[in-house]
Structure formats: structure tokens, C-alpha cells
Design a protein around this nucleic acid. Structure first.
Length: 564
RNA sequence: CGGGGUGUGGCGCAGCGGAUUAGCGCGCAUGGUUUGGGACCAUGAGGUCGGCGGUUCAAAUCCGCCCACCCCGACCA
């Protein structure tokens, strides 16, 4: 490709809205162009990189035994009513109306669709195991697109689905996918970690995410450097230290004028925060929920949502709290009636807690569960933090941010049961298919690769993803000898199967070198009057500083060795 | 949706206590001089100042409403 013909220009200055490195560089190098929030065009250079990534994914999926197909993006909304996931996705679901006033959704994912296909074609255990995948555009009306390609509303995703006869077979499929994913990330030049995850709106039970650790990531990863425990903060657990055993004391009301927050109450009464119980009010699917947790801990809303099995969860507003008769700042479960109460199991980690008196300006000392109050659900709903104790080995947990570049789930029989995707086993018994699903966001992965592979000058593509392998940089194109030598190299090398981006522009050396660094092809090959004096071209790797003068006759060989 | 911010040629910005033809740098076009790390000179094209309404003799500038985009939280590949 001649740079003089390439569609897309490099920018000298980065558009102000870009903050993350990948976003800035993709724009600056002329690889993407934003249309509206979370919607981008891929320009030729970006598109080529994306294609290479897709190809790697295809190869690994195929190697794992998955078969590629393509399923519709446009789906009747009834399909989503039936599965109930129109509610789970809520406002994130894009819908359109056709000329007959029928509602259709622009699919955010394809579990329903693929289950439907499996229902029609899989009849016997002889058809199993089966893995199907596609690379397809997904639509999700995200509340907040961000970070360029990191989080968008229209995006290409590789989604794969496995069908097995039983849990044991699913485990095998799952394992083979884990391996395929690891291969993919390695080939893309990424160091990905596999962590325990929450399964979110997709449903199902076991779930893992692949993460790339970086500050610009949206997720918090909780990990233990001693035993290797790693989990998304949404899901991470920890040891809630037991307080000292002590005899239960009688409930006692105390005046706490002006003290409303846990901090204030604890200070006022001179007790540590972990000797108090905090009250938090949530609204879920129209119902008010009273949540209580030890005063030094925070509520993990994902865990809470899972415990409640609710589709929507948010903090209750003042009006809702007032209407339900709760006294914000002095609320507790003691004596509370007619409201669903969810407690974190930390309320059993000690005795004689300070709690609200449900009376403005008063608290109670020595509250004990279950002596003084009842709860509807008691489970782990606490947010893990750095510094807390590892649930596996007890040492101190750490935290860092990460980008989710892949998510895999053991779905089990949730979808197959609901949609009647059944097969007949060896004994002639009809059973639901046991499913798994496995997703990779392609654009996001590309962004993650750039986040991990760049310097102050630009992108540093791994050979596997670089839009072109070689940046042929001709300095002084209006000199006949240079132009001829460069043209000759270009033609010959292209003929030998190398992918070249030929900078044939009449630009100064500075411009060319800077663009070469910005676009980040692995090898820069320079031809100029200077190099031609010794019938050579200059070879420089994007990853290094060294410049090597290679005789023209040996360039092919040298490139072969470098790009292997 | 809550909080914060920004909207002025393709990109980055200035102008915003009201006053002729709305500036600057980059980029773009033409001509010339340059050519090993973002060259220089000359000429030129390109703007509903986010939109609508209001105040005023006069609005990019003041007021109101709306919209878009970005950042922080709830969602996810």
C-alpha cells in the first residue's frame, strides 16, 4: 500500500475528547473515526489490524473444534420476552420497529438464537459435543460509552457457544476454551489473567473473565500475591475477622444527637466502626430493601443483586426512604416490620453492636443477631478491598484495575430448559443440553493491545496484528535513484509476500519517521541517497533503537528472519 | 439517571465586562526554495461561532430552554 493513496491521515494533534492512550493513538494514527457516542468507523489501517485479530481468533476457535456460523442481528422481540432477558438488559436493548409495526431487537448477544438453532438440529447424544461461534456485530445501548474502543455501543464480538451432554463434558469444553483464549491473547502480544467473575445479565453459574491489568481499566481486580487468588471485585470474597467473644449484654438506648453516619456514631460513642451495624436502603424492582452490614464494611451491589435475584437495583432516594417510615441516620433492623431485610453475614462476626434506634437522635447499644432482630436473607454481600484477608490463605489482599478482554460462562441448562433444547441420551432419556458461552470483544481487545503496546511516539504493533509488517520509508522521493530503488524494493518485496506500507510521499524525513513511529509497524525500512551509496537499505525495529544497514540484495532474507 | 466539564473552519485553541470584514497555529490547495527526526516563503480555499428563543440600535459575547460530546459513578465484551 502506498501511503500517498492510503485513506486516513495521521493527526498532529489529538482530538481533545480522547484520554486513554489507545483512544488517542487510534485517532492520531488515523485508524478509527467516531460518528457518535460509542460508534466508530474503522479506517483501512485499523480495519486491517482488526482483521488480523479476527483471523487469529478464528484459527484458535477452529483448532478447539468450534464451527463458525453467522446468526441474525435483527431478532423478533418475542424471543426476548420469552427468555425474560428483555428485562435483564433493560434500556441497553436497542429496538427497532419495522413497517408492519413489529418490534425487533438489535441483538446484544445470541444465547437465545443459538439455543434455538441447537433445538432444531441437535437430537441425540451422538450430535455432541458441539461448539458454534460467530464474529458478529452486537448492539448495546450502554449507559456510558467510554475510552474510545474500550466501551462502545456497536461492536464486533466473537461469541462461541458449547453444547454438551452433561456437566463433566461441559467442563471439558470449558477447559478447551480457556486454552484457546490463552492462545489468542498470547498471539496478540497480551498478558491476560484469568479471574473469577460474576455472571451478570447472561445468567448461569461458573464464570471467569480474562483481564489485562492497566490503570485505564474499568474493573477492579482483587488478588492475593501469596496464594494466587484472583477475582473481580464484584465477586471477590474475603475473611471477615471475628471479633472477640463476649457475653451478650442487654439492649440499651442511648441519645446520639447529631450523629448520623457510622463515623459520627462510632466517634460519639467511642466504639470502633466494626462494633456498629450500618443500614443502607435500596430500591429493587419497585420494592424497598433494607440492607444491614457491619459498620466498617461496604455493600457489594452485585452480590446484593444476585442475592435478591433482581433485575434492577439502585440506592433508594430520600422520598422512598421517608415513605417507608425509615429514619435515615438512625435506622436498624431491630423492631422493623413489613420491609425485606438483607444482612451481610458479618453481623454474626461479633456481639453487642451499636445500631440505630429507628428514632431520630438515638441509637441502641448491644444489639445481637438473632436475639434482637430477624432478617429475610443473610449471606455475603460485602465488598472486598485491598488490605482485607484473602479467603484462601489469609494474607493481605491487593487490588488493581483491569480491562475485561474476555468472559466465559458455564450456562448449564438455563437456556436449553427454557427453550426446550433437548437431546436423547444413550439410555433413550430426554435431557436438556448443557451449555457454555464464551465471548471476546474484538475492538476492545484491539484497544487493550495498544494500551499495553505503545510508547510516547505511538503504537508498537506485535507482528501478528500490525496492519503492515514493513514501513518502507523513502527519503527524497524526487531523487531519481531513491525513487527507483524504493519502487523496486516495494515491488519485489510485495511479490515475495511481505506486507508493505510504502511512504512514497514528498515529505521531510522528520514527518516520515514520526508517522512511522506513530503507526507502529514492526520494521522500518529506509532508503535514501545515503543508504544507496553502499547499495543498502536501513532496517530498524519499532521496538528498538538499533539501526542496521543491510545490502539491498539481502533485505528479503533479513526481513524474513525479523518477521518470523 | 446523578455529579463535573466542553461546544468557535478537518484538528488544537484565542476572542466571551456587547461594536465594523470572527482571529491564530496545524492541516488542505497552488507556486517556488528545501530534504536523515514533525522545513521555509508567497498566495489561496474553507466558519449556520452546537440549536432554538429572548434582551438590545447592535449578540460568538448577556438571559432562558434544548441538544451533542467528554470525564466520574450504576452496566458489560
Amino acid at each position: 500500500m502506498r501511503l500517498s493513496n492510503l485513506f486516513g491521515k495521521t493527526l498532529r494533534e489529538v482530538p481533545a475528547e480522547a484520554e486513554t492512550a489507545s483512544h488517542q493513538l487510534l485517532l492520531k494514527a488515523g485508524m478509527i473515526q467516531q460518528l457518535t457516542a460509542g460508534v466508530y468507523s474503522y479506517l483501512p489501517l485499523g480495519w486491517r489490524a482488526l482483521h488480523k485479530m479476527e483471523q487469529i481468533i478464528r484459527e484458535e476457535m477452529d483448532a478447539a473444534g468450534a464451527q463458525e456460523l453467522c446468526m441474525p442481528v435483527l431478532q423478533p422481540i418475542e424471543m426476548w420476552h420469552e427468555s425474560g432477558r428483555d428485562l435483564a438488559f433493560g434500556k441497553s436493548l436497542f429496538t427497532v420497529t419495522d413497517r408492519r409495526e413489529r418490534q425487533l431487537v438489535l441483538a446484544p448477544t445470541h444465547e437465545e438464537m443459538v439455543t434455538e438453532l441447537a433445538r432444531r438440529y441437535v437430537k441425540s447424544y451422538r450430535d455432541l459435543p458441539l461448539m458454534l461461534y460467530q464474529i458478529q456485530t452486537k448492539f448495546r445501548d450502554e449507559p456510558r460509552p467510554r475510552g474510545g474502543l474500550l466501551r462502545v455501543r456497536e461492536f464486533s464480538m466473537k461469541d462461541c457457544y458449547s453444547f454438551d451432554a452433561d456437566e463433566a463434558a461441559l467442563d471439558l469444553s470449558y477447559k478447551s476454551m480457556v486454552q484457546a483464549y490463552k492462545n489468542i491473547y498470547t498471539r496478540c502480544g497480551l498478558n491476560a489473567m484469568l479471574i473469577e467473575a460474576d455472571s451478570g445479565a447472561i445468567g448461569g453459574k461458573d464464570s471467569h473473565e480474562f483481564m489485562v491489568a492497566t490503570e485505564v481499566g474499568e474493573d477492579e481486580i482483587i488478588y492475593c500475591s501469596r496464594c494466587g487468588y484472583v477475582a473481580n471485585a464484584e465477586r471477590a470474597s474475603f475473611v471477615k475477622m471475628k471479633l472477640n467473644e463476649e457475653p451478650l449484654l442487654p439492649l440499651q438506648e442511648v441519645a446520639t444527637p447529631g450523629a448520623k453516619t457510622i463515623e459520627e456514631v462510632a466517634n460519639f460513642l467511642g466504639v470502633p466502626k466494626n462494633r456498629t451495624l450500618k443500614a443502607v436502603f435500596y430500591s429493587t424492582d419497585g420494592e424497598l430493601i433494607f440492607v444491614t452490614i457491619r459498620g466498617d464494611l461496604e455493600v457489594n451491589e452485585v452480590k446484593l443483586k444476585n442475592a435478591l435475584k433482581s433485575a434492577e437495583l439502585r440506592l433508594a432516594n430520600d422520598e422512598e426512604v421517608r415513605r417507608s417510615g425509615l429514619v435515615a441516620g438512625s435506622a436498624s433492623a431491630v423492631g422493623l416490620k413489613g420491609i425485606k431485610i438483607v444482612a451481610d453475614d458479618s453481623i454474626t462476626s461479633g456481639h453487642n453492636f451499636v445500631v440505630g434506634a429507628n428514632k431520630d437522635g438515638y441509637h441502641l447499644k448491644n444489639a445481637n443477631y438473632p436475639r434482637d432482630f430477624a432478617v429475610d436473607i443473610i449471606t455475603d454481600i460485602a465488598l472486598a478491598r485491598a488490605g482485607y484477608q484473602c479467603p484462601k490463605c489469609g494474607s493481605s489482599l491487593m487490588s488493581r484495575r483491569g480491562i475485561e478482554i474476555g468472559h466465559i460462562f458455564k450456562l448449564g441448562t438455563v437456556f436449553s430448559q427454557r427453550q426446550g433444547a433437548l437431546y436423547i441420551d444413550r439410555e433413550g432419556v430426554q435431557k436438556p443440553l448443557v451449555m457454555g458461552c464464551y465471548g471476546i470483544g474484538i475492538g476492545r481487545l484491539l484497544a487493550a493491545v495498544i494500551e499495553e503496546n505503545h510508547d510516547e511516539k505511538g503504537i508498537i504493533w506485535p507482528v501478528s496484528l500490525a496492519p503492515y509488517q514493513v514501513y518502507l520509508c523513502a527519503l527524497g522521493m524526487d531523487e531519481r535513484a531513491v525513487a527507483e530503488a524504493a519502487e523496486k524494493l516495494y515491488t519485489e518485496l510485495c511479490g515475495k509476500g511481505f506486507e508493505l506500507l510504502f511512504d512514497d510521499r514528498k515529505e521531510s524525513p522528520g514527518v516520515k519517521f514520526n508517522d512511522a513511529d506513530l503507526m507502529g509497524m514492526p520494521v522500518r525500512l529506509t532508503v535514501s541517497r545515503r543508504t544507496l551509496k553502499s547499495s543498502s537499505a536501513e532496517v530498524k525495529l519499532r521496538t528498538g533503537k538499533d539501526i542496521e544497514l543491510v545490502p539491498l540484495a539481502e533485505v528479503t532474507e533479513r526481513l524474513r528472519a525479523l518477521l518470523k
